[in-house]
């Protein structure tokens, strides 16, 4: 049983500010963290490992410092960690990112067949929720998004049973393995790892793979492979807050009068 967890290193969004002049994110000095949604993917993988026994590999694409996020994943109990890092991968949109990650997972699959890929539902810096499904398509794996519970996994018959959060209600789905699932936030609560895991992480060397180490078409990676261009970044003007008119219980007429007055003023503007 081999589980791959996809994670991304993101700036701690609680500390990011928008530059009011250029409208871009001010990332300087902002600490990096594992995308909070990916934490649920990590814990879900650990729970499957607890139940069935499995090897878990975390994979990420990013600059060299993304190793810190992978090391952190190892300290939480992940077995192996791989970083896809190359200048050619830089500047990728979701299309190129999912292609690159799929190539990385294919390489992992060759070493040790992958049964399940788990992703967070989306990242906090991009918010697209496109990379998980993109990986599934490129790998030819079943695609299960917005999962709120894994009910059962049958490795003998290569089947997985999940509850999926759908627009109208809940779906109970059965699917073939290997599969890619993206999990919802709140699906679990991260454990407090035992001390030996932290020592293992402190000594662990994250594997770094560049374009030469995996089978990958450079033209589909990074900036070259990204059809999306950012035309403009802007902060939407906050919606104006509605005005509250307090309700006078003893004198509803008075409240009504105050309300109509305001409406009339607005109408006459």
């Amino acid at each position: 049983m081999h589980i791959v967890v996809c994670i991304k290193q993101v700036p701690d969004s609680t500390q990011v500010k928008i530059d009011p002049v250029t409208n871009t994110l001010m990332r300087q000095g902002v600490p990096s963290i594992i995308n909070p949604y990916d934490i649920f993917a990590i814990e879900e993988a650990l729970r499957i490992k607890d139940k069935f026994g499995a090897k878990i590999t975390a994979i990420s694409m990013g600059p060299p410092q993304a190793k810190d996020a992978l090391k952190k994943a190892v300290s939480l109990g992940i077995d192996e960690a791989v970083l896809l890092s190359d200048r050619a991968f830089a500047g990728a949109d979701t299309l190129a990112t999912s292609y690159c990650l799929a190539c990385g997972i294919k390489a992992l699959n060759k070493e040790n067949p992958v049964d399940l890929v788990i992703c967070g539902k989306q990242t906090v810096d991009g918010d697209t929720a496109q990379v998980g499904p993109g990986i599934a398509v490129r790998l030819g794996f079943s695609q299960l998004t917005y999962i709120e519970k894994i009910e059962k996994i049958d490795f003998e018959r290569k089947e997985i049973f999940v509850y999926r959060h759908a627009e109208k209600g809940k779906q109970y789905l059965k699917s073939r393995l290997p599969a890619v699932i993206t999990v919802l936030d709140g699906i679990n609560e991260l454990r407090y790892a035992p001390l030996p895991e932290l020592f293992r992480a402190a000594r662990y060397q994250v594997k770094a793979w560049d374009k030469k180490l995996i089978e990958i078409d450079e033209n589909l990676c990074g900036m070259k492979g990204s059809p999306t261009a950012v035309k403009r970044v802007f902060a939407p003007t906050p919606r104006q807050r509605g005005e509250m008119v307090s309700f006078n219980e003893r004198n509803p007429e008075e409240t009504a009068r105050a309300l109509t007055e305001k409406l009339l003023i607005n109408k006459n503007g």
Partner: peptide, 9 residues
């Protein structure tokens, strides 16, 4: 003794 499981050093 730390607050983690297997936490003695």
């Amino acid at each position: 003794r730390t607050g983690r499981a297997d936490g003695e050093l």
